[in-house]
Amino acid sequence: MQLMVTDKTRRNLLKAALLGMAAPVLPFGCASNRALREPGLIGCSIHGRDDFQVTIADEFGQPIYRLPLPARGHGVAIAPQLGHAAAFARRPGEFLMVFDYTKGTLVQTIKASNRRHFYGHGVYSNDGHWLYATEGERATSRGIIGVYDARNQYQKVDELTGFGIGPHEVIIMQDGTLVVGVGGVHTDGRTPLNLSTMEPSLTYLSPEGELLDQVGLADHHLSIRHLAHDGNKTVLCGQQYRGKPEAYPSLLAMHQRGQPMIPLHAEPEQWARFNHYIASIAATNDWILATSPRGNCYGIWSKHSGELVELLPLPDASGVVTNGREFRVSSGSGKVIFQSQPGGKRQINSNIPWDNHWSAIH
C-alpha cells in the first residue's frame, strides 16, 4: 500500500502542528505499519534555522512523531508511568515543554520566570510523581533544582538550592537520590564570567534537598556537566574543560558516594579529539561510551580498567543510550550507530538531525 501525501494531508499536518499536536511521520509505508511501532527513544532535533523539534522515535531511532519546540531544545526527561516526557530548552532556556509521547500531543509548556532560566536538563522521580529541573538565577547563576508536581498540572512546589552555581544535568539513582553535575560557572547568557574562580562539583542530594555528598576534580577548570549511571551505584560524569586551550586533561570520571573521583584514561592526543567537551554518556556492565559533537567522535572505555579502548569518528556525535548490553548512538548527520563492544558496529540512517542527547523509554 502506497501512502500519498495530498494537499489536504499537508494542510492537516500544518493544522496539527499549530494546535500543538505532533504530525505523524509518513515515509514508512501505510499507516498501519507506523501504528505497530512503539516509542522507544526521544530526543531534540534541529531541522533548519529556527526550526527546532522534539522527535519521538522507535527503539531503532526511526521517527514516529515530531512536535515543534519554541526554541532549541537540549535534554528530555521521561515518566513511563504517565506516558509523559519533558523537553528542556538549551541554556539559558526559557521553557520546558511537557508532552504525551504515546500520542504525540502537547500537555503544557512552562515558562521560566523573569529572573530564572533553565539549564537544559531534568529528570522525573522514580514513581513519576515529581519532575526535577536544573535552573539558575540570572543575576548570580545560583543553582536551583525546581520541583514540579507532575500529577497536579506541573505546579512548582519546591526549590532545592545551596549546592553551588551553574548546575547542568540532574539524574536520579535507584534509591531516589538526586545527582547533579554542578558546572561552577557564572554566566551572562552563555558568556562565562568566573573561569579563574569556578568551583564545579558532583553533588548528591536527597529528594528534600539535603546535601549528602559533594566531590570535585583536581583541576577546577573541569566543569562537570553531563551524567549517567550504570544502573547500580556508579555515576559517570563528563566534563567541559575551561582552562588552557593547549591542555587536554581527562574529560570523564567515575564515582561512587563516599569515595574519590576516578578519572578515565586516554592519551592527550586522544583527548584532543574530543575538543574539550563531552556531550552524552552511557554505561553497560563492561563498557562506557561518551560522545563529542564538537570533536565529531565517540569513545569506548573499559569500565574495569578505565582505559580508552576505541575511538571512532562520527559527524556531530550526539546522544547515547543503552538497550540491554547494546549502545545506541545518534548524530546530527542522522546516522544511528548500534554497538555492543569495541570492534564491531552497524549503522542506519534515521534522516533526523539529532541534537546533543537521547533519552530511552524503559
Rank of each mutant, 00 (worst) to 15 (best):
W271D: 00
V25Q: 14
P260L: 01
T197A: 14
I145L: 04
D127R: 10
S201R: 05
A247R: 09
L67W: 01
A22K: 02
E326G: 13
A23M: 08
I165Q: 03
L312R: 12
Q240F: 12
A150T: 03
A253S: 15
A17Q: 10
D188A: 15
E199P: 03
Q240H: 15
V336Y: 00
T102W: 09
I224Q: 04
Q153P: 00
G258F: 07
V25I: 12
C30M: 13
P192S: 11
I281N: 09
G184C: 06
Q239F: 15
T197V: 09
T197H: 11
R142A: 04
G93P: 00
L36V: 02
D188W: 13
S292V: 06
L96P: 02
G43A: 08
F327K: 14
F88G: 02
P167F: 03
S305Y: 01
E269R: 13
P27W: 10
P68H: 05
D219L: 06
S330N: 01
E94H: 15
G143C: 02
F327G: 11
R138D: 07
A85D: 03
F52N: 15
G40W: 07
E38C: 11
I42R: 12
Q341T: 09
H226L: 05
F60H: 15
A112C: 05
L106S: 07
R37A: 10
L289M: 12
S333K: 03
P80Y: 11
N351K: 13
H276D: 08
G75P: 01
L69N: 01
V182Q: 04
G258N: 09
H121S: 05
A139D: 08
P200S: 06
I262V: 15
G209Q: 03
L67F: 08
F52L: 02
I288M: 08
S318Y: 06
S206L: 03
G238I: 11
Y204G: 07
G40P: 02
L193W: 08
L67T: 05
Y132M: 04
I337D: 01
H121L: 05
A266K: 10
D188K: 15
A279I: 05
Q259P: 04
R242V: 01
D127H: 12
V25R: 13
G120R: 03
P260E: 01
Y119E: 02
V157F: 10
I46L: 14
Y65P: 02
G164S: 01
M21G: 06
E137Y: 07
C237L: 14
